[in-house]
Design a protein around this nucleic acid. Sequence first.
DNA 1: GTTAGTGCAAACCTTTTGCAGCTCT
DNA 2: AGAGCTGCAAAAGGTTTGCACTAAC
Lengths: 176, 176
Amino acid sequence: MAPESIKEALKERGIRLTRQRQILLDLIDSSGKHLDAEQLYRMARERDPKLNRVTVYRTLKLLKESGLVDELDLMHYDGDQHYYETRRKQEHAHVVCLSCGKVEEFFGDPLQKLRRQVENTLGYEVAIARTEIGGYCPTCQVTRQEELERASQAPGGERRRHSSKRPTSRARKKKK
Amino acid sequence: MAPESIKEALKERGIRLTRQRQILLDLIDSSGKHLDAEQLYRMARERDPKLNRVTVYRTLKLLKESGLVDELDLMHYDGDQHYYETRRKQEHAHVVCLSCGKVEEFFGDPLQKLRRQVENTLGYEVAIARTEIGGYCPTCQVTRQEELERASQAPGGERRRHSSKRPTSRARKKKK
DNA sequence: GTTAGTGCAAACCTTTTGCAGCTCT
DNA sequence: AGAGCTGCAAAAGGTTTGCACTAAC
């Protein structure tokens, strides 16, 4: 959605287009990435150091409720925060690599079919559909394969193979 | 998945089957509903008043990492907590009514196709797929229609129509 | 007897709320 | 002028962590 039409949409709803909201709208719309509230807050503060974290949350809530942005979880790969993107023409799924965290988007007819089938078979009026897929990207599949081999060769390396997990989100957070 | 095979799977991994875990496993597996950590905790305490909330979280984390249960958000309809269900044979989507909170499950080939296409076109090894759909169930569609009509007839009832939102999760929480 | 798991208290991260003051229209 | 919005401080909700003790293998 073009920045202009977003702003139009807000005006139409009697929602004021304040300086803070313009900054946030710009950031979400132009970044092209999936930003969470904290990242958005940091970026916004570069343009207006007075802008408060609370305003970020309030704006996001507003945009979400107005259907202008979509809220994502991205499989909680990096913690329990939410990510945001402007709602685009085409429905798409988000594919997250559980090993390196890369996020890719998938467009394809199964998504449209899914929506239609839910409407037809369950009689729902679908407002929003979110599909998130966790897996391993081509690059990380190789790495993982090597790790598994190494583990099975190591002495006593059979039990508890699932404990070779990456640090938790909290742990990673602190390191930053 | 039958309780027995879950327990087998754990034993295989060298994970101890403690009294607390048996209780929780039983609850998740037999309830048939989508329970969150807090509900699970309350129910577990009825069987063992000493069982701690932390144990619930730790057990859920363990089961999730072992791929024995799936974690859901259910569109955050009722807050930001997570819900759990034992991983079943058939992949399915969760359809949440944004008005009454009812949750239905949808099985259908678009889900399998989606998975296959992501694997083929992006080259990912898919580990977990989660599709959540928010919408309005047949019953609530009627109610909603009436509300919209009433609103458009009411004096000055045009602007800010999106503010006719239900109370936030936090607000609802307090009422309980 | 080890090692893994538990309970308790305290911390943590993310998000929301109350309220006084500011600002768009 | 007046509703709407912001900032600040404080709280809340959900979840995790550190550590001493206990229980499963």
